[in-house]
Design a protein around this nucleic acid. Structure first.
Lengths: 123, 123
DNA sequence: TCCTTGTTATATACATATTATAACAAAGCC
DNA sequence: GGCTTTGTTATAATATGTATATAACAAGGA
């Protein structure tokens, strides 16, 4: 059984919350290369949302190379590594976040520290 | 004169691009504490978008403590530092980004390196 | 007085998000 | 072979979010 927490009061769209949590689940090694995710219908039922909302999350995960879709086994975790592109995208997103921190007097060291903290939470 | 680059083909909403660029402008010291931003009407005209779109960006910047609105001087850069809350929000956003990197075989060291790279760009 | 300021309100158009049904071929199961 | 479940696609309806167009108001500057 998969564990997904959806906040229906969040500003983030449902499909985005799903997308984010699956990626964080892979990073935290709760889902592993080769694992199957529940079918779009199953997961939609268990969360209590529409099939197409789940399908949208799965489709984006596929496009961005986190899962591969197998006719027999459904959505299977399968990472397609494109390091250059990933680094470029991460940089863009980090620039905005670091700027927010910088405005609020958060030092570079505190950011590094925050990174360490997040990695420690993986244990 | 303020320098804002809007990409009308971006997936990001116009007000969000504006919001991000003003924050990045403050972080890069192009806008400083006490500086006035253009009026909503002026900026809207110079970019070629609607007044309310600019107003939305300004309103969020105000809510999040990046500017203060002075009846005489318009939107003035004025940072309201709430370090605890800022750190909590940054952490949430970083968790998702780092998870993406982790899935794509980007090491912790490479993240630290990316942070350094972004800070170096401020010079 | 006149103009500009931020602010608020209303209306419209368009895009995105979410749900509801429905249908299809491919694969697994009995 | 029949039945179910799979991913996938299509269409429609609704709700929400984004952007624009006008308009009006009080407060402050020139």
């Amino acid at each position: 059984m998969i564990q997904i927490e959806i906040d229906f009061n969040s500003d983030d769209a449902l499909y985005l919350q799903l997308y984010n949590q699956i990626i964080m689940g892979i990073a935290a090694d709760r889902f592993r290369e080769g694992d199957s995710l529940p079918s779009v219908r199953q997961l939609a039922d268990s969360i209590g949302i529409n099939m197409h909302t789940v399908n949208k999350a799965y489709t984006i995960l596929k496009q961005e190379g986190y899962v591969r879709v197998d006719r027999r086994r459904g959505a299977v975790i399968a990472i397609d590594v494109d390091k250059m592109q990933t680094l470029a995208e991460l940089k863009k997103q980090l620039q905005v976040i670091l700027a927010k921190g910088s405005c609020k007097n958060i030092s570079k060291d505190e950011i590094h520290q925050l990174i360490e903290e997040i990695y420690e939470d993986y244990s």
